[in-house]
Computed example of a mutant assay.
Amino acid sequence: MVVVGPVRNCSATIAAEVARFRSVLSGFASLSFLVVESDSTDDSVQQLRQLAAQVPGFAFESMGVLRDRHPIRCDRIAVCRNVYVERLASDPRYRHIDYVMGADLDNVNHQLSAEAVLSCWRSDVDWSGMTANQRLAYYDIWALRHPVWAPVDCWAAYREMAAVVGHRQAIEMCVASKQVRVPVDAAPIEVESAFGGFAVYRREAFVTGRYVGVDANGGEVNEHIGFHADLRARGHRLYINPAMINADFTEHTYYKTPLGHLRKELMWRVRETADSLHCREQLEAAIDAVKKMLAGSSMERPGKLR
Rank of each mutant, 00 (worst) to 15 (best):
M1I: 12
M1W: 09
V7D: 05
C10P: 07
S11V: 11
I14Y: 02
A15S: 10
V18A: 12
A19T: 12
S23I: 08
V24L: 11
S26C: 05
S26L: 03
S30I: 05
F33H: 13
L34K: 02
V36N: 12
V45G: 06
Q46R: 15
R49K: 13
R49N: 13
R49P: 01
A52K: 00
Q54A: 11
Q54T: 11
P56G: 06
F60C: 04
E61D: 10
M63Q: 15
P71F: 07
I72A: 08
C74Q: 14
C74R: 04
C74M: 13
R76P: 01
V79L: 10
R81F: 11
V83A: 10
V83E: 09
Y84R: 06
S90G: 03
S90W: 05
P92H: 13
R93Y: 05
Y94C: 12
H96P: 00
H96Q: 15
I97E: 03
I97Q: 05
V100R: 02
L105A: 02
N109V: 08
Q111C: 15
L112G: 03
L112V: 11
A116K: 03
V117Q: 04
S119K: 09
S123T: 15
S123L: 02
D126E: 15
W127E: 08
W127I: 08
W127V: 08
W127T: 01
M130I: 10
T131D: 00
R135I: 04
A137Q: 02
Y138W: 04
Y139T: 07
L144V: 01
V148K: 07
P151Q: 02
A156W: 14
M161E: 14
A162M: 09
A162Q: 13
V164F: 01
H167A: 14
R168V: 04
M173W: 07
M173D: 15
C174M: 07
C174Y: 01
S177R: 05
V182D: 00
D185R: 07
P188V: 00
E190D: 10
A194L: 05
F195C: 06
G196A: 04
A199S: 15
V200S: 02
Y201C: 05
R202N: 06
G209K: 00
V212G: 01
V214M: 06
V214H: 00
V214W: 03
G218T: 09
G218I: 01
G218N: 07
V221N: 08
N222Y: 06
G226A: 15
G226Y: 00
H228P: 04
A229R: 07
A229G: 05
L231W: 03
R234G: 07
L238H: 05
A243C: 10
D248T: 10
Y254W: 14
Y255I: 13
T257K: 04
L262N: 11
R263A: 15
K264Q: 15
L266I: 13
R269A: 14
V270T: 13
R271W: 11
T273Q: 14
A274L: 08
L277P: 07
L277G: 02
L277K: 12
H278I: 09
C279Q: 09
C279R: 02
Q282K: 08
A289H: 09
A289S: 15
V290M: 08
K291G: 12
K292H: 13
G296H: 06
M299S: 13
E300L: 09
R301I: 14
G303F: 12
L305A: 05
L305R: 06
